[in-house]
């Protein structure tokens, strides 16, 4: 078994009196593709947010690359090698695609506190890195358009490229297919597959679309009402009677 990259142990999170997440544990190994699934309100996004530092959990712990990050601020986790996207694309809408990526690349290269324009050599390096990311997600043609002018699917691809701009080991994707048209979905699916296949990154994503989950993920964690219902490979999960009966619905799995 390869290295343990991310581990959550007994994570709990309450909002007022509601236990959004209770005693959830998860292990993500380097080089794998992992999915978290579950019905609405299962606590998927809440759990996801405790992993990325958007919230701090009330109970349990999160460790990343062997270090305890339970209460580490988001920007520290990013610097340790964690990238993430959001359910509703989170970008800099008025900046161009190029600029959106440049902000992340400059952050990773410790250039963000530079008060003068980049030197010629720095500029060339930046252009090169931006081009590589644009090529990876296929947005080269719109590099100098503001994000606000782009279609939803392109914004999502740009956001994925932004999460790569900080050179992560692990990419967290929160419902990457949410709100996308069919054609856009298949494009995003192939990009996620390439994150793993081409770049060798570890991926953890939350997703509703069962077809996507079963075709992409190697390891699936099923959440229901804030707790882990089952963990396993796609075959194990589709065969799990508890998961089937609990909520997924027989026909969904049979159709895949």
């Amino acid at each position: 078994m390869s290295d343990l990259l991310l581990e959550a142990k007994g994570v709990g999170k309450r909002f007022g009196g509601v236990h959004a997440v209770e005693d959830v544990s998860l292990r993500v190994y380097a080089g794998s593709i992992n999915a978290i699934i579950g019905p609405n309100g299962a606590g998927k996004t809440t759990f996801f947010n405790t992993l990325s530092g958007f919230y701090f959990p009330d109970a349990g712990s999160v460790s990343f690359t062997g270090a305890d990050v339970t209460r580490a601020p988001s920007y520290d986790r990013v610097r340790m090698g964690m990238g993430r996207t959001f359910q509703t694309s989170s970008v800099f809408p008025e900046l161009t695609v190029y600029e959106n990526l440049a902000v992340g690349i400059e952050s990773a290269d410790n250039l963000s506190f530079r008060f003068r324009t980049l030197s010629r050599a720095q500029r060339a390096t930046l252009d090169q890195k931006v081009d590589r990311l644009l090529g990876f997600v296929g947005l080269g043609a719109v590099a100098h358009r503001p994000l606000a002018e782009l279609a939803h699917g392109s914004q999502r691809l740009c956001e994925i490229a932004m999460s790569l701009s900080t050179e992560p080991k692990l990419v967290l994707l929160d419902e990457p297919m949410a709100g996308l048209a069919q054609a856009e979905t298949s494009r995003v699916v192939s990009v996620i597959r390439n994150l793993h296949a081409e770049l060798g990154l570890t991926v953890l994503f939350v997703e509703h679309n069962m077809r996507v989950v079963l075709s992409l993920a190697q390891q699936i964690t099923v959440l229901d009402r804030g707790r882990v219902l089952a963990t396993g490979t796609p075959t194990e999960i589709s065969a799990n009677a508890e998961v089937r009966e609990a909520y997924i619905g027989k026909e969904v799995i049979e159709h895949v």
Binding site: S74, Y75, V78, S90, V91, V103, T166
Partner: peptide, 9 residues
Amino acid sequence: VRARYLGLN
């Protein structure tokens, strides 16, 4: 929020 998730304090 996005800026923080690009590693910026």
